[in-house]
Simulated assay, not measured.
Amino acid sequence: MCERRRYPSDLSDARWALVEPLLTSWRDDRARHRLNIGTPPQHSLRDLLGAVLYVARTGIPWRCLPHDYPHWNTVYHYFGRWEKAGIFERLNGLLRRRVREDEGRTPEPTACVIDAQSVKTSTNVPARDQGSDVGKKIVGRKRSIVIDATGMLLTVLVTAASVQDSTVGQTPLDRVAANHPTIRKGWADRGYREYLVDHAARLGIDLEVVRRTPGSRGFTVMPRRWVVERTLGWLMHHRRLARDYEARPTRSTAMIYIAMIALMTRRLIRESTRTLRGT
């Protein structure tokens, strides 16, 4: 039987080699705790992850997965298992450190940038998980992300869009301070109030609010803040993130990590993202 044709979202051999050890270790660990020890796996981990990447990139419903992938129900089952086990977050951390080392930086960052993005939600998202961002006139969810100086994701939190930036920003900063004690400097936009600056100071982080130059008009590239805006733009290349389709905030968080995993694996092997531009 001939091998199926690869999709643009599928992992190349070099990209698969970056993520395969962690997924194989997860499967081996589960096998040791199962009663039916010795039963061979029925599905390729590479095909399962490729199917998840396909959904993230194209934005299709799970039920519309092409038939040459494993059954959509199986893929969604593994997606849920990996999300609960923290596999996507761990992969994000491992790849981020490799990206930093590849660019001649220390594995752990010393500075960060925080920002939030409000997006509309689909009809399957429960009303209790939604809210209205009055300033941006969006009813949906809010993604609060913290990145390092290279634009790589440190942590993300998905909440209702109605939650004020400074309020929701405390949790990501707490996570960053706990998981990355080397961080001593941070930047944010003026949507974050002074009490978040005080909260960051208690964590040992000097959080600076970047403001527009008085009298400036039109579009202006803001120092430091442009890095996080670029990261949010990267996420929008994945159509599953153009609108929040996930019923659970944790699954929405997992999709954001998946988008960053796809980006970092390409970045590490110098593989460009295929698009339709210029064709």
Rank of each mutant, 00 (worst) to 15 (best):
W26S: 03
L53W: 01
V19D: 02
V19L: 02
Y69I: 04
P40Y: 07
E20I: 00
R34Q: 14
H43D: 11
S44M: 03
H33W: 06
D29Q: 14
V55S: 04
P41N: 11
P41Q: 10
G50M: 04
T58D: 09
A17P: 05
I37Q: 15
A31W: 00
L18A: 08
D10I: 08
I60Q: 08
C64Y: 11
P21W: 05
L49G: 01
A51K: 03
P40M: 05
H67N: 10
R46Q: 15
R63E: 14
D47E: 15
D47H: 06
N73H: 11
L22A: 12
P41R: 09
R63S: 11
R63V: 11
N73Q: 14
L53V: 02
L49V: 14
R15E: 15
A17V: 03
A17C: 05
R27I: 01
R30L: 15
L18T: 10
H33C: 09
D29F: 06
R63K: 13
P66N: 09
D10A: 11
L18K: 07
H33L: 14
G50A: 06
D68C: 05
P40W: 02
L65H: 05
W72Q: 04
V19E: 02
P21A: 11
I37V: 13
H33Y: 08
Y69G: 00
D29H: 13
H67T: 14
S44F: 00
P41C: 06
W72G: 03
V52G: 01
L45Y: 02
R32H: 04
D68Q: 10
H33I: 04
W72A: 10
